Structure formats: structure tokens, C-alpha cells
Computed example of a mutant assay.
Amino acid sequence: MERTAVSSMIGCCGLDCEKCDAYIATINDDQALREKTAKLWSELNNAPILPEHINCAGCRADGVKTVFCESLCEMRKCARSRNVATCGDCAEWRYCPTVGAIIANSPAALRNLEH
């Protein structure tokens, strides 16, 4: 089956950046959403995440990224090192435990990677 091009707003892991609160807060310059997202992400990650950290134009798009997306995301680092747009473009993605953790919790990510 021939693969089709995937939207630049689909992250390396298959998640849709356009549905991410950091992206939504950024494109709408929504300070209340930044504050809400920072509080939630701080609690979920047991890390000091501030509203000013909630700025992202998308994993694969040009522009600002959250610290996680820019430097900490293992899937993004791996995809960039292998010169693939998404993990779905890698021959090994179906056996990757890191990608497996995402697709186990997100059927939409799996569909996006199967493009």
C-alpha cells in the first residue's frame, strides 16, 4: 500500500498537534488556557511548568515549541535522527515500545501513523 503524505500538524508520534492545548493557547494567544494547561501538566508530570512554557506551533511545524516537544520528546528526537516525518515512516515503528505507549492510549495516533 502506498503511503500518503501526513499533515504537518501530526506530530512525530501520531498525535494531532491541532488538538493540543499548548497549540490552541498559542494560536489564540489564550492566557487563561496557558494557565490551566500549565497547572494540569505540572500536576501530571510532577514538574514546575509555568504558563510561559505553554507555547507551541506544533511538533513538526516551524516556530516555537514547548520544552518537552523541542528537547525532551524521545519520539521527535528519534524521528529527526532517522530523517522521517513521523514514526509511521520508520520501518521499525510497529515494534517500538516508545511509540507503543502512545498508540496504546490513542487510537487516533495509530490511524495517523498508518497514513
Score class of each variant (00 low, 15 high):
residue 43 E to N: 07
residue 68 F to H: 05
residue 15 L to K: 09
residue 13 C to V: 05
residue 51 P to S: 08
residue 106 S to I: 02
residue 2 E to W: 12
residue 114 E to R: 12
residue 57 A to G: 06
residue 40 L to M: 10
residue 75 M to D: 01
residue 29 D to H: 11
residue 102 I to H: 00
residue 82 R to N: 08
residue 35 E to V: 10
residue 98 T to N: 09
residue 7 S to K: 15
residue 72 L to S: 11
residue 27 I to C: 04
residue 78 C to S: 09
residue 53 H to S: 13
residue 80 R to M: 11
residue 33 L to N: 08
residue 58 G to W: 10
residue 83 N to E: 12
residue 45 N to V: 01
residue 10 I to K: 04
residue 75 M to Y: 01
residue 86 T to E: 11
residue 82 R to S: 04
residue 18 E to C: 10
residue 56 C to I: 00
residue 106 S to Q: 03
residue 36 K to E: 14
residue 41 W to S: 03
residue 23 Y to D: 09
residue 40 L to E: 12
residue 111 R to A: 14
residue 11 G to I: 05
residue 71 S to Y: 12
residue 70 E to I: 00
residue 93 W to E: 04
residue 31 Q to A: 14
residue 110 L to Y: 04
residue 18 E to Q: 14
residue 80 R to K: 15
residue 86 T to F: 01
residue 11 G to D: 07
residue 110 L to A: 14
residue 115 H to C: 06
residue 12 C to M: 05
residue 77 K to S: 08
residue 42 S to H: 03
residue 65 K to G: 04
residue 42 S to L: 03
residue 2 E to M: 12
residue 98 T to E: 11
residue 113 L to V: 01
residue 73 C to W: 03
residue 32 A to H: 05
residue 67 V to L: 12
residue 103 I to W: 03
residue 92 E to W: 14
residue 11 G to W: 00
residue 45 N to S: 10
residue 89 D to N: 15
residue 33 L to T: 10
residue 98 T to Y: 08
residue 45 N to K: 06
residue 16 D to M: 04
residue 44 L to A: 12
residue 4 T to F: 13
residue 88 G to A: 12
residue 86 T to L: 03
residue 44 L to M: 15
residue 91 A to G: 14
residue 79 A to W: 03
residue 100 G to P: 08
residue 77 K to Q: 10
residue 102 I to A: 00
residue 36 K to A: 13
residue 103 I to P: 07
residue 57 A to Q: 15
residue 71 S to T: 15
residue 12 C to Y: 03
residue 14 G to D: 06
residue 69 C to I: 02
residue 114 E to D: 12
residue 31 Q to N: 11
residue 54 I to K: 09
residue 68 F to M: 01
residue 106 S to W: 00
residue 56 C to F: 07
residue 66 T to D: 08
residue 27 I to V: 15
residue 72 L to V: 08
residue 60 R to D: 10
residue 9 M to N: 13
residue 64 V to P: 14
residue 37 T to W: 06
residue 100 G to T: 05
residue 67 V to M: 07
residue 30 D to I: 05
residue 108 A to H: 07
residue 17 C to F: 01
residue 83 N to V: 04
residue 49 I to V: 09
residue 82 R to G: 00
residue 87 C to E: 04
residue 80 R to Y: 05
residue 110 L to F: 08
residue 73 C to Q: 01
residue 96 C to T: 10
